[in-house]
Design a protein around this nucleic acid. Structure first.
Lengths: 215, 215
DNA sequence: ACAAAACGGTGAACAGTGTTTACTTTCTGA
DNA sequence: TCAGAAAGTAAACACTGTTCACCGTTTTGT
């Protein structure tokens, strides 16, 4: 990691950081719509136009927030991986961590799947995709499935990439639901016997159960 | 269904319909952001303010589009239910239908889970929730699970409401992914062995498999 | 050291957005 | 027929993201 430490660059980086952290604060609480350039400018005591000296557009600014979020997501999943645990438990834990982090910052997570911030498919190989933190999160999932198959914990005829996608999709669904439906999994007509945390575990369990080798 | 047929009401209904169908056309192609009041007004050759004589706000207008969409979704799931099929197949088919309809109108589906168009939970009973078409779609899912448990096709110790939610969540994830990621399930780093349709079946299969009674 | 160029910052404007207000025209019910 | 309601409108309000011309200051090249 190379850092230009000329005094000019240091000053510039400081202002850039001030913009980003103010944006992060507002975005976390009020989301993409609550974050306006003018409000952001006021908060850091600059003119709106000044922000454009540091970011090409509001979109690129928000993109940076999203990337930082997925970096935290990755770090959290790494940190929580207890290698002494058997595969099944470790997998369930990883899935649960993914959702819990996503739910902790619902606006970040939701925004990452809206705008067209996706490499246009169909893609070639892991190289491109793995360069975004979002991509790395998926590849971590895929690696987990591959390990499970190799170890023999999961059904061996499964295609790891395919299964990883299916799991990812189901995880995403829950994160999205919790982020968007107030009080989920409590729901009119649903009879919420479980708390949010318990439901997350239940969901992760259902997924793994469908994949495990029949005993 | 009561309809006021005074000439005044008929004219009013006609204009209202013209607004709605123009809105539907634009919304289906360009989504919520592409649909602006001014553009809509121009398309039907009225002034922007005129639209507010028929709808309180843009949001209520879009809400009506969303409700109509979920009505189509429900109808499609009903229509596709082949009662002569065994439970497992019928269930897989229902899930696949849900996703295919959602994917056919990605903007409608996505919008339904963004704005805060949700009854604030935790809720009392099925009555309230079942009054929106979105709610009815979930209750249909729940009914399906209950049937599966009663028939003995699904594990009997499961709570139907809970399982239905988990399934719904996983379905939602896929619909959302396909709606937002161009070309999904093709994905850089994912090696897309399956087409979209095949992936939908695979996903639906994974869910049901995790629930079926161990043989 | 000095001119030239790049940088950081600004106020004002442009082109949009959803919505409201005051106003005119048209229609309708008694 | 005539008052009052309904339908429709132009113009404005308060926003939005973004760009432009301009300003001092700072850095750079000779």
């Amino acid at each position: 990691m190379k850092v230009d430490n000329s005094p000019a660059e240091r000053r510039r980086g400081k202002v850039r950081g001030k913009i980003l952290s103010a944006a992060e604060r507002v975005f976390a609480q009020e989301g993409q719509l609550g974050l306006s350039i003018r409000r952001l400018a006021e908060e850091i005591d600059y003119s709106p136009a000044a922000i454009y000296k540091y970011f090409d557009s509001k979109e690129t600014l928000v993109d940076e927030l999203k990337e930082a979020f997925f970096q935290r997501l990755l770090a959290e999943m790494d940190r929580g991986a207890d290698l002494t645990l058997p595969f099944g438990q470790r997998a369930r834990q990883a899935l649960a961590t993914y959702i819990r982090v996503a739910v902790a910052k619902p606006h970040h997570y939701a925004a990452a799947f809206n705008g067209q911030s996706w490499p246009e498919g169909p893609g070639e190989d892991d190289a491109d995709f793995g360069e975004t933190n979002k991509g790395r999160a998926f590849l971590m999932l895929k690696g987990m499935v591959e390990e499970g198959i190799a170890i023999g914990a999961l059904q061996s005829e499964l295609d790891a990439g395919l299964v990883a996608k299916s799991i990812w999709v189901a995880l995403h669904g829950l994160a999205q639901m919790i982020a968007h439906i107030p009080g989920f999994p409590a729901l009119k007509g649903g009879y919420s016997a479980l708390s949010q945390d318990e439901f997350i575990d239940f969901h992760a369990d259902l997924l793994i159960r469908g994949l495990e080798k029949d005993i």
